[in-house]
Amino acid sequence: MSTSVDALVTTVKSQSRVRRVVTNQQFVLFVVLIALILFFASRNSLFFRVGEFSNLFTDFSGLVLIALAETYVIVAGGIDLAVGSTAAVSGVVAAGWIQPLVNHGVNQAVILLVGTLACAVVGALAGGLSALLITAFDLVPFVATLVTYSVGAGLALVISHGAPVGYNPGAIYWSASGIGMITWLVAIVLVVAVVLGVVLHLTVYGRYNFAIGSNEFAARAAGIAVRRHLISVYVLAGVLAGLTGMFFYIRSGSGAATTGVTNSANLVAIAAVVIGGASLTGGVGRWAGTMLGAAVLTVVSDGLIFINVPPTWIQVVVGALIAVAALLQSFRRRSRRVP
């Protein structure tokens, strides 16, 4: 082509390398994580033990799947307030269904696989409800998922009569078995987490997720099936919440209607995503950020108990942490605008 629009382009001045690293949320989080671990270990040297790291990995696993679910949803420009109660309702439903198998002494592996499937199905239904409300009835995600949250929390209470459902001590013992600080349960969760990261950042599906959250019109105009994608994202989030319900069933050997509800697990998960550097307006977020965000939250809340801090302070510290992360993010965004 003979002409050129070179004139349209003036070179953007590059940021200094140092500034880029220091304002990189993941880098900062990594430093914070290491500092926290060192701090807790300095207060109580027992922190540096396989048993404690096993505890940390386990608690991390209870958070990371719903945090990654939120990452997908938030990157796509939405929010999912339902993940906590979806975990609860999945857990009590699965616990009820598989208890006859437990009573009949069926092989534990079979029981847990059936339970996992049940949780995934219930989770998918919950996510499907959110997706339906958003795509077919045009509710904003905040309201739609709040509806799903209430339905899930209510159903969990009704199904369980407010009491733990089922009892499977074999599951508890299995949840504690593994190699070194990594239990089998944790290993499975970590594999799922890695797959989610790969899909988010390396595949077409993940690319569409960012595109939709960044500019939904642009995504639609580029031929992306936005509605179908959003449905799939909320269903995925539901499934991950369901799996989290199964995780807690396995860990405590029963399903409880309070799991993920009374501790506002949905907000903790969103906090992990925000700490990880994602933007609540969509289009921005990183798997590694969420992983580190969830790790920092886990280490803080466990570590404070570990060094015997009064429970009321723990909430204050976690709140402060989120505030710092939000400030860091706005600083980073502003620094990026430098021409």
Partner: peptide, 12 residues
């Protein structure tokens, strides 16, 4: 009121 929260804390 959440068994898993109690469990994590007792584990610590």
């Amino acid at each position: 009121s959440q068994p898993s929260v109690a469990q994590s804390a007792f584990a610590q």
